[in-house]
């Protein structure tokens, strides 16, 4: 074999060899265990904080509200649908309680008239006609909407 080809071939082999060695060194740990990805990334994805705690957690302290809610039309609505956790604050509801004002604007998110909303199930109203001045919770108990408050 001519010297030239041999030398080039050798250079090529050295390059490929170095490349493969670097590849071995820089491939992260657990890569390729289940497929073409870092298997540890699955665990990384589990590491996030749960801001929403789930109903079972609320139930630990607020059994009375649950009992009240179960008897009225909001029975299927879960606590955190309205009481969303305060982000960037403590995730403990005793430190920053997720209080909801119960304004017309808030209730309208679900109850404002919209032809795209099915009539059955979710009552829809024109809030201007229904009651313009006050917040909804001044008459309705949000946990049991048909338990109207006396004024």
């Amino acid at each position: 074999m001519p010297k030239l080809i041999f030398r080039l071939f050798l250079t090529f082999v050295v390059f490929v060899g170095i490349f493969i060695l670097i590849q071995q060194l820089l491939t992260p740990e657990s890569f390729g265990e289940y497929g073409h990805y870092r298997a540890n990334a699955i665990d990384d994805n589990k590491m996030s904080t749960s801001f929403y705690k789930g109903e079972a957690k609320c139930n630990e302290c607020h059994q009375d509200i649950f009992d009240q809610k179960a008897l009225d039309v909001h029975d299927a609505v879960r606590c955190e649908s309205c009481h969303s956790p305060k982000i960037d604050a403590s995730t403990d509801c005793k430190v920053s309680p997720p209080i909801v004002k119960g304004t017309i604007k808030f209730c309208a998110e679900c109850h404002a008239t919209n032809p795209a909303r099915l009539k059955k199930g979710v009552p829809q109203l024109n809030f201007k006609e229904h009651y313009d001045k006050q917040n909804c919770i001044e008459c309705h108990n949000p946990h049991a909407p048909w338990e109207l408050k006396e004024k």
Binding site: S50, F51, Y52, G54, E55, A76, V77, R78, E80, S81, S84, C110, G121, V122
Partner: peptide, 11 residues
């Protein structure tokens, strides 16, 4: 737990 969107869906 349920995904957050499922947890809060009122309907």
């Amino acid at each position: 737990l349920q995904p957050a969107c499922v947890e809060v869906c009122p309907t």
